[in-house]
Design a binder for these strands. Structure first.
Length: 155
DNA sequence: GCCAACGTTGGC
DNA sequence: GCCAACGTTGGC
């Protein structure tokens, strides 16, 4: 069982939007970065924990907890010319891009802001801080526990 | 809206 | 394979 952080702009798709989705689930589509793709395709497994992060927000921060319910499979939005994430290089016989499905578990009692994450002992090495551009990133078990505790969740 | 950091593209 | 130009992300 591993832990991940996934970013979404709340103006586009927030944790509340996930809570209101059918079955509280969604497919995590539209990732067009090779490092993130490799994680989606090869590493992220059903049952893994997800920190749902609001980027480009006021303030930005971790908004909720989700879990992976389906492992990597081809991102079909890349095949659709009408989709904003269309990529002609990706074909159904040889997909370039992958996605997973996630399910909301619970919102955090309060948003854990980026400023708090930066200030927290034990979170200095979070990929969020060291490679801020990566939209799907690994989280260590220790970081996972600290984030939950700081946000007021039981371990 | 600005801008720094980073990833990707393409000329050579 | 190098690197400059360009595009995107995301904090502020």
């Amino acid at each position: 069982m591993n832990y991940w952080l996934m970013k979404s702009e709340p103006d586009v798709f927030s944790f509340d939007d996930l809570m209101r989705s059918p079955g509280r689930r969604t497919c995590w589509d539209g990732v067009r970065n090779y490092q993130a793709r490799n994680l989606l395709r090869d590493a992220i497994q059903p049952g893994d924990g997800v920190l749902f992060y609001h980027s480009n927000a006021n303030p930005s921060g971790v908004a909720g907890i989700a879990r992976v319910v389906r492992g990597g499979y081809p991102d079909h939005t890349a095949f659709d010319p009408a989709d904003p994430h269309y990529d002609p290089k990706s074909r159904p016989e040889a997909p370039t891009w992958y996605m997973v499905d996630i399910e909301a578990v619970e919102p955090l009692p309060r948003l854990l802001t980026l400023a708090e994450i930066k200030a927290a002992k034990g979170l200095e090495k979070m990929v969020l801080l060291t490679n801020s551009r990566l939209s799907v990133q690994p989280v260590t078990e220790s970081e996972w526990r600290i984030v939950r505790r700081l946000a007021g969740l039981k371990p």
